[in-house]
Every structure is written in C-alpha cells, then in structure tokens.
C-alpha cells in the first residue's frame, strides 16, 4: 500500500509550493476585495505557521518536514525571503527560527465563559506577495522535478513529496501537462509524488473542490490543471470528507475559484499527516 510511510525525524516528508507570481496575480478574487497575490501570500504564511506549530514540541521544533517555495513570474526560483532566500528546501525548524518579520495581529478567542476576547498573536511572515511578468509554469514544474527527484533519491522510503501549485491559470511557456506528468511519475518506495493544483480565478461562478471529472469546469485552463492533478490518496479523501467536502468516487487534488478560506482549508487537508510519529 502506498502513502503509509511513517513520518518521523529520521524519515521526514517534504512539501514544495509553486506560486504563480505573474502580473495578473494583482487582480482581485472573483467577487472579493483581496488581491490574489496578497491572499496567496497570507495562505502560504499561515500554512508555514501551521506546519511549524504542528512540529513544535516541548524540546523545540522537530524536522518532520522539509519545505520549499518556488515562485514563478518574471523569474523562476526559490521565493523565501530573509535568511532563507535562495534556499530551495528548508527543514521546518529553520523556518521556525527565520521569519522575515513577525507581525502582531489581533484574533478573537473564546474566553471559556461563552464569550470572545481579543488576543494578541504573533503572525510570522516568510513570503511576500509579488505580481510581475509572465506565467512560466513549465519551467517551475521542471525545477520542482529536480528538487523532488533529488529528495526521493536521498529519502527513498519517506512519505512521497507533495507539490502544491497555486496559479490563476494560463501557462505562458508552453503546455504544462507533460511536465506535470513527469513530476507525478517520480516515485519512491511509498508511492508517487503528489501534485495538487489550486486555481485562484478571477472568473465568477461555481466553485469546484476535489472534483472527480473535468466536464463541468468552466474553461480550458481549469480543465488542464485538473488533468495535471494527482488523484487524492485514500487518507486525504477521508480528511476531505471529515471537513465536509462532498467528494465523488475519483476525486483529484484540485480546487477552482477557491476563496482564501478554501485555499487555506485545501492546504491544510493537503498537508495533513495520517501517520506523524
């Protein structure tokens, strides 16, 4: 059975985010007031924060994961800021200790007596929004291929790498389907690498979350991203159902027209371990 390897410090897993930083990412979400690049940056920072917290134990942050962020727009390459700049893949303990800045934000929390109170929280930032240039998705997938291939060679028994591509649609450096397939074909002892796609569209209309078919998707770019996406492994199907998603028999790791909340939920499900030890 695939996707059952235990995730531990001696057998860590990895996530790689591919972030569309093309000029069109400065547009707003369909029906929303937030720029797509800002919303995606917030989602990535939130996710990195969640990963660090998940791995934080009494003795420090344990390296259950290594994480990378590749940006693609005017250029393609590692997109962390600050001390981590130019690093393709970083253990999560390094991420914990190296935010570019830590903002103070206010969040509402339960007071234990039925009410809500304001609580100051620290919101670390590793990744800043950027929207400039074209959408060289093929080159981004090729860079991801090399990083994932190297990872599998050095971690052949680890839980397979998960690559999450966040884009507003059209590749400008060619058809990305073949590069996506080559990436999905990379495999270790516990299964093939997983490629998930988050389509942050400015087009209004229906939202699609983990669809089983492309037939109702509204444009060719959405259909293309669906074709590029891995089938959801069983443990992630269970996680999606527990989150209340109404999924079919053969769901793929793809969401369309997702608002920022759905993006975060998707990322949270996509990175949920079933076997963290």
């Amino acid at each position: 059975m695939a996707y059952e390897a235990e995730i531990s410090r001696s057998n860590p897993s990895m996530f790689l985010f591919l972030i569309d930083q093309s000029g069109s990412m400065d547009e707003k979400f369909a029906g929303g007031s937030t720029r797509k690049d800002q919303a995606v940056a917030d989602a990535i920072n939130r996710l990195l924060q969640n990963l660090v917290i998940k791995c934080a134990k009494s003795d420090g942050v344990r390296d259950y994961y290594h994480v990378g962020v590749i940006g693609y727009g005017a250029k393609v390459g590692p997109a962390f800021g600050g001390e981590l700049a130019d690093k393709a893949l970083v253990p999560v303990s390094k991420i914990a200790d190296s935010p570019v800045e830590v903002e103070e934000r206010i969040k509402k929390v339960e007071d234990g007596a039925g009410g809500l109170i304001d609580q100051k929280i620290r919101f670390p930032i590793w990744f800043k929004p950027l929207a400039f240039g074209g959408t060289p998705m093929v080159e981004a997938l090729k860079q991801a291929h090399k990083i994932v291939d190297d990872w599998i060679r050095t971690h052949p028994t680890s839980f397979p790498p998960i690559v999450i591509n966040i884009t507003d649609g059209e590749s400008t450096d060619g058809d990305p389907v073949a590069a996506a397939k080559a990436l999905r074909d990379l495999r270790g002892a516990d299964g093939e690498a997983l490629l998930f796609n988050v389509h942050v569209s400015s087009i209004g209309g229906a939202t699609f979350e983990f669809p089983s078919s492309e037939s109702e998707l509204p444009d060719k770019f959405a259909k293309q991203l669906f074709q590029m996406s891995s089938p959801l492994p069983p443990h992630l199907q269970d996680a999606a159902r527990q989150e209340g998603y109404n999924i079919g028999e053969t769901p793929r790791g793809f969401v369309f027209n997702a608002d920022i909340v759905a993006v975060i939920r998707f990322l949270d499900i996509g990175t949920r371990p079933s076997n963290l030890r």
Binding site: A56, V61, I121, R122
Partner: peptide
Amino acid sequence: LPWYVEEKLGY
C-alpha cells in the same frame, strides 16, 4: 518564549 511555543500553548 519563541513565537511558536507561545502560539502552541494557546491551543
């Protein structure tokens, strides 16, 4: 406390 310890204590 590091930011992540503080945050995690809140959970």
